[in-house]
């Protein structure tokens, strides 16, 4: 979907300098609705509880930076940060290693039962993840993995979605290079590694960005499997904190901002890849 970005530039270049007052009149208020919650979150995170509950409210923050510090008292924030980062990185690395490999096989190699196996992979895609939770929990417990980083990572390393997405991608690649490699005597592994995987890079990047995003934000599984606060992820830690009567709104706002900041920063850096990744999921196939 590199085209998404490019089409914009093209459109702008041959713009006929029409005025778009009407369009802006819709888009500006709409984007205000999109951004206002975040602005209000920042403002509130810098207030005391008494001033946050003042009616009518003040629109200005008050420089109460200690709300951010209090997050570190209430939660083992640094541990949870690290767990979340390890989970996101581990799952993504696993998917990068495994998904394109299987996807390539499904797209290009011929073997008996390929369709049936692919059908099985696809069926996983249809099943709501909650269906896996109870047995996955039992498996994790029997491995002695409860409250561990591997419990967060391992079940999430295998993605039917990644295989599906990349298979579509491989199917769309030209066969010529692959045939040429084969003529040179390269086996499937070499062909995959030196020819096809590099060609599939945009697809793999798209998948990785999504894997990173989804695992960072994942709640259900981490909530269930890691109950020791030092082994929790940020989502689960924050969710638990929210239930506490003691935790006041300004502190919650500070915490939720801190927790989502890394992904927002990643998005700022990798905006194109994020957007292409999402656009890819829309490719009908």
């Amino acid at each position: 979907m590199a085209e998404v970005g490019r089409a914009y530039e093209g459109g702008r270049a041959r713009s006929r300098r029409r005025s778009h007052v009407g369009v802006h009149a819709i888009l500006i208020p709409a984007s205000l609705v999109m951004i206002a919650p975040f602005l209000w979150q920042i403002v509130t995170s810098l207030k005391t509880l008494s001033s946050a509950t003042r009616v009518p409210p003040s629109l200005l923050p008050e420089g109460r930076w200690d709300n951010y510090g209090r997050m570190f008292d209430l939660l083992p924030f640094s541990d949870q940060f690290l767990n979340t980062a390890l989970m996101a990185a581990g799952r993504t690395a696993g998917q990068i290693l495994l998904c394109p490999l299987a996807a390539y096989a499904f797209a290009r190699l011929r073997f008996p039962g390929r369709s049936v196996l692919f059908g099985l992979f696809l069926s996983v895609l249809m099943v709501p993840p909650q269906l896996f939770v109870l047995p996955q929990y039992e498996i994790t417990a029997s491995l002695g993995w409860l409250n561990s980083v591997q419990a967060l990572i391992v079940p999430g390393m295998f993605s039917a979605f990644g295989v599906f997405l990349l298979r579509q991608f491989f199917l769309g690649l030209p066969r010529e290079l692959e045939e040429a490699a084969r003529l040179d005597g390269a086996g499937p592994l070499r062909t995959y590694w030196y020819v096809m995987l590099p060609l599939a890079r945009p697809g793999v990047i798209a998948m990785s960005v999504l894997a990173l995003l989804w695992s960072w934000n994942d709640l259900f599984w981490p909530l269930v499997v890691n109950t020791d606060p030092e082994k929790m992820t940020l989502s689960a830690g924050l969710a638990a904190l929210q239930g506490q009567f003691q935790t006041d709104y300004p502190v919650l706002m500070a915490g939720s901002l801190l927790a989502s900041l890394p992904v927002i920063a990643a998005f700022a850096l990798l905006q194109r890849q994020f957007i292409q990744g999402i656009a890819h999921t829309g490719v009908k196939g």
Partner: peptide, 18 residues
């Protein structure tokens, strides 16, 4: 573990042997 989650988590970890 925050109060609201405490007994839920405790039960889970007792069941899970941890």
């Amino acid at each position: 573990t925050p109060w609201t989650e405490y007994f839920n988590k405790l039960k889970t970890s007792v069941t899970g042997g941890s």
